[in-house]
Simulated scan of single mutants.
Amino acid sequence: MSGAQSYQAGNIDKDRVVYLASDFDNVTRLFLDAAERCIASERREKELQQRLTAADEALDSTKAELAWQESDNAELRKRVGALEGLLRRGKHYGSRPWNRDVEAALKPAEGGGDEA
């Protein structure tokens, strides 16, 4: 209440302080403005919390998907290793054209793949 002036109310009550109506209106306006800003701030906080929750859920989902893919990738690598072993053992029993196909299949891919 920086600009509000108080006045003693004559003989009514020595402890009573009164304000002019214009000062009361100014103080009321300032209070209502502050209340509106507070409500807007609370709404904004709620919106941000909802966005944070959604982002956190998306992150959890992505982590779960990545873990599943890594598990699946490890399983596929095991199966490829087993198949390569069978091909290497089986090439001793095949014909020459079949052996060439097996050798070509067992060569590492150009570019080195994941192992490079």
Results as ranks from 00 to 15, higher is better:
Ala21Tyr: 02
Ser61Cys: 13
Ala9Met: 06
Arg37Met: 06
Glu45Lys: 07
Glu115Met: 00
Asn73Met: 09
Arg96Gln: 14
Arg100Met: 10
Asp114Tyr: 03
Gly94His: 02
Arg51Phe: 06
Trp68Ser: 12
Gly94Ser: 14
Lys107Gln: 15
Ala34Cys: 13
Leu30Ser: 12
Ala105Met: 14
Gln49Leu: 15
Thr28Leu: 15
Asp25Trp: 02
Ala4Asn: 05
Glu47Arg: 01
Ala35Pro: 01
Ala67Asn: 12
Leu83Lys: 09
Glu70Ala: 02
Ser41Ile: 03
Leu106Lys: 03
Asp114Glu: 14
Ser6Arg: 07
Gln50Thr: 06
Gly10Lys: 05
Glu45Tyr: 03
Asp72Val: 07
Asp13Met: 02
Glu75Gln: 15
Ala54Arg: 07
Leu52Asn: 09
Gln69Trp: 04
Glu45Asn: 08
Ser2His: 07
Ala82Cys: 07
Leu66Ala: 13
Ala35Glu: 14
Gln5Ile: 12
Trp68Glu: 13
Asp60Tyr: 04
Tyr93Ser: 08
Ala64Gly: 07
Arg96Ala: 08
Leu106Asp: 07
Glu110Trp: 02
Lys107Tyr: 04
Gly81Asn: 13
Gly90His: 05
Ala40Glu: 10
Ala116Pro: 04
Phe24Gln: 08
Tyr93Val: 08
Gly111Cys: 03
His92Gln: 10
Ala54Ile: 05
Arg44Met: 04
Arg89Leu: 14
Ser22Phe: 01
Ser71Met: 10
Gly112Gln: 00
Asp33Val: 01
Ala67Asp: 15
Ala105Gly: 11
Asp101Trp: 05
Ala34Gly: 15
Ala74Glu: 13
Ala105Arg: 12
Leu83Gln: 11
Gln8His: 09
Gly3Thr: 08
Met1Ala: 06
Asp101Cys: 12
Asn73Arg: 12
Gln69Asp: 11
Ala4Thr: 11
Ser41Glu: 10
Glu42Thr: 07
Asp13Gly: 02
Glu47Asn: 10
Thr62Trp: 04
Ser61Glu: 15
Asp25Gly: 01
Leu87Phe: 02
Ser6Ala: 13
Ala109Tyr: 05
Cys38Ser: 12
Asn26Trp: 01
Glu84Phe: 00
Lys63Gly: 09
Gln5Asp: 10
